[in-house]
Design a protein around this nucleic acid. Structure first.
Length: 698
DNA sequence: CAGTCGCGG
């Protein structure tokens, strides 16, 4: 522990921090920056007037790093050293070093914009460019001006591109701290493989037969490919078994794997047995597998992106960035020198790959983030000119503003409303936050809370094992309710209410093919939302009311009405002659109800005239996922508001609102550095086309 | 009929 590279730089770090409000620290994996920086500052008096905050993009990291620091300082976790993540605050009045997720620090700045309790704020792993860390960097830039005398900000990153961050913070100093990685030899393929599954298979077997011991980590794009490759590998290894080489065990590793299967990669392998781990990018940063000496890198990753001009998400396989490629290679050098086999040529690495992954802020819907920034009520803030490290496109910001206007979170001038302020307090997407507020008016807040909590969790419903469900066809073991035909939101409500009636039985969850972890998370979210809504609520927030014979259809009607208000910007109208829909409000999109929906048709096989949807996702077709029937009379006011929006679009709260029509090209002149975002977007598109072209060739 | 990489409040 004591010979961590960073400790040799202690004096240099202290001197630099002493003289500068912001310092960038570049430290590779193994430099000890996450555990040592806070301790160095603690030792040198930086906690005399406040707490040291260290943010992490992931909860597990916040917990595990704080645990290690507490150990090293020989204190109890929660005393001098603690952590705070959603649902769990292990800090006390004695806490001097506090590890927290970037999301939690953002929440804190809502109630205290100057973050006065902190004397030092360290944004760790900033190179990952998580949405929340990016917003925090923007806020820090303002904050250091306000608190020049008593706040130090440190930004740490594992990559070498500290210049950009330094430029952002008015040329602040950059300190480099070496890491403790072993050298990794990089080997390239002569050409792009036709199939990276086949190519990975051959390479893995080649390593297994010819190279000395050491585990193999293979990066694939998704569950499907992983399962295919795992079974091909197992076949092949069995056919090899002639005593010519050691045994091998093949382990899949991805996010939708149940936790007990994920843990398998942390238990040591049987003796004289090589492990071959086939993983998604979960093994890139989130999970570290010890014992890996060989990495096989397909060069691809699956990425979700948002298109602000259509309001649609898509999940695309795209080329990784050079930073990502190097991160993957580094996984081979944690315990001893290793090798990384890239299944693409050096020229592709040099010429085709982006330098860094497009930051999340340029790939997400920004309605929630924009509302959050508006709610901070910072003086002279214009969202369209907010100083981001990498600005999102103006189109994306306009999209967010339009959405917020339609659900009454901001007014025509772009000023946040009282409704908007309440919404910002809720850890929910704006549409669901708005739904809760409306539901309170119509006496169905308990039901809306349940729906919002259910939608906060992906993957509560069965993962859909096709092999199992195929036999049982129409009736999977589930006797789950069907939403009474109204749609998926109502079904989610009914499912949770049933679970509530079993007194939250785990067996019931399993019997119905739901995920235990997911449902427990829903319960936690619901509890948290209740606590926040308590002060506004008109009545009890219990899941089911005690009164006898409540009129459920009436509850559903009120809930649907509330959803219609919350989802005003996610409304679709059925085609006159068939069951397709067109979205209303944005550049109109032709979409279909997702086949998994429980929305029912009428006796003539016709879907409702109007629905609201939770999400547009483009897979094999453009689909609406999670839809709910709404009534014409509730839709009319939305259409009227859209008329207004089409004529006049709000700017960011400055005094010069722009006049543009919905379909005109969005002016970009007012947005600083809009170009890089658009450039990145087109490069993602180009990368995707290259991928599809190659796929089509095989 | 479709099927989702990974994070966060």
């Amino acid at each position: 522990m004591s010979n961590l590279p960073i400790l040799q730089f202690e004096d240099k770090i202290l001197a630099t921090v002493h003289e500068n409000p912001v310092v960038v620290i570049i430290g590779e994996t193994g430099s000890g920056k996450s555990t040592q920086l806070s301790q160095i500052l603690l030792r040198n008096g930086y906690t005399n007037s406040g707490i040291i905050a260290v943010t992490q993009p992931r909860r597990v990291a916040a917990v595990s790093v704080s645990r290690r620091v507490a150990q090293e300082l020989d204190v109890r976790l929660g005393d001098e050293v603690g952590y705070a993540i959603r649902f769990e605050d292990r800090t006390s009045e004695r806490t001097r070093i506090k590890y927290l997720t970037d999301g939690v620090l953002l929440r804190e700045s809502l109630s205290d914009p100057e973050l006065k309790q902190y004397s030092v704020i360290i944004l760790d792993e900033a190179h990952e460019r998580s949405l929340n860390t990016d917003i925090l960097m923007g806020l820090m830039k303002r904050l250091i001006k306000l608190r020049a005398s008593n706040l130090k900000v440190l930004i740490t990153s594992a990559t070498l591109d500290g210049e950009k961050v330094s430029d952002f913070f008015s040329e602040c100093p950059i300190l480099n701290v070496p890491g403790k990685l072993f050298p990794v030899e990089i080997l390239y393929s002569a050409e792009q493989p036709k199939s990276y599954i086949e190519s990975s298979l051959r390479k893995a077997i080649d390593i297994h037969v010819n190279e000395p011991e050491g585990d193999i980590l293979i990066f694939m794009t998704g569950q499907d490919d992983i399962e295919k490759l795992v079974s091909r590998l197992e076949e092949k290894i069995q056919s090899l078994e002639a005593g010519s080489c050691m045994d091998a065990v093949v382990l899949p590793l991805h996010g939708s794997l149940p936790p007990e299967m994920q843990i398998r990669v942390f238990s040591p392998p049987p003796k004289d047995c090589r492990r071959i781990i086939v993983a998604t990018n979960i093994a890139e940063t989130s999970l570290t597998v010890d014992g890996v000496v060989y990495v096989i890198d397909s060069g691809y990753v699956k990425q979700r992106q948002y298109n602000p001009s259509t309001g649609m998400y898509s999940l695309d396989v795209v080329e990784i960035s050079r930073v990502q490629a190097n991160q993957r290679a580094g996984r081979a050098g944690r315990t001893r020198p290793g090798k990384c086999y890239r299944l693409y040529p050096l020229a592709v690495y040099q010429d085709n790959l982006l330098e860094a992954t497009v930051p999340e802020i340029q790939r997400s819907s920004l309605a929630g983030s924009v509302l959050y920034l508006k709610s901070l009520d910072l003086p002279d803030i214009d969202i369209l000119k907010f100083d981001f490290l990498d600005a999102p496109s103006s189109e994306s910001l306009q999209d967010a503003l339009k959405q917020l206007f339609l659900i009454d979170a901001i007014d025509e001038n772009g000023t946040i409303t009282n409704i908007g302020k309440t919404m910002a307090e809720l850890p929910l997407e704006p549409s669901l936050a708005r739904t809760l507020i409306e539901a309170n008016k119509y006496d169905c807040l308990p039901q809306a809370l349940t729906v919002a909590a259910m939608l906060s969790v992906e993957g509560t419903l069965l993962p859909g094992r096709s092999k199992h469900t195929d036999k049982k066809r129409k009736q999977p073991p589930s006797e789950l309710p069907d939403g009474s035909g109204w749609g998926d939101h109502i079904q989610l409500l009914q499912i949770y209410e049933l679970w509530d009636q079993t007194d939250y039985s785990t067996d019931w969850v399993k019997d119905n093919n739901l995920q235990v972890r997911g449902m427990l998370f829903v319960k936690n979210v619901r509890k948290q939302l209740c606590q926040i809504m308590q002060k506004f609520a008109k009545g009890s927030l219990d899941v089911r009311r005690k009164e006898r014979r409540r009129d459920r259809q009436n509850d559903y009607k009120n809930l649907r009405k509330s959803l219609c208000v919350g989802y005003a910007s996610q409304l679709a109208e059925r085609m006159i002659r068939h069951n397709g829909y067109r979205t209303v409000g944005f550049k109109s999109q032709l979409v279909q109800v997702h086949p998994s929906s429980v929305l029912r048709t009428d006796d003539e096989g016709v879907y409702p005239n109007y629905v609201v949807y939770h999400e547009l996702i483009s897979t094999s077709h453009p689909y609406m996922r999670n839809v709910c029937e709404v009534e014409m009379e509730w839709v009319t006011p939305i259409l009227q508001k859209l008329e207004k929006l089409n004529v006049k679009i709000l700017s960011g709260g400055s005094n010069q609102p722009e006049e543009i029509t919905e379909n005109s090209d969005v002016p970009k002149k007012d947005v600083k550095t809009a170009a890089p975002a658009d450039d990145a977007k087109s490069r993602i598109q180009a990368a995707r086309e290259r991928f599809l072209a190659r796929k089509g060739n095989k």
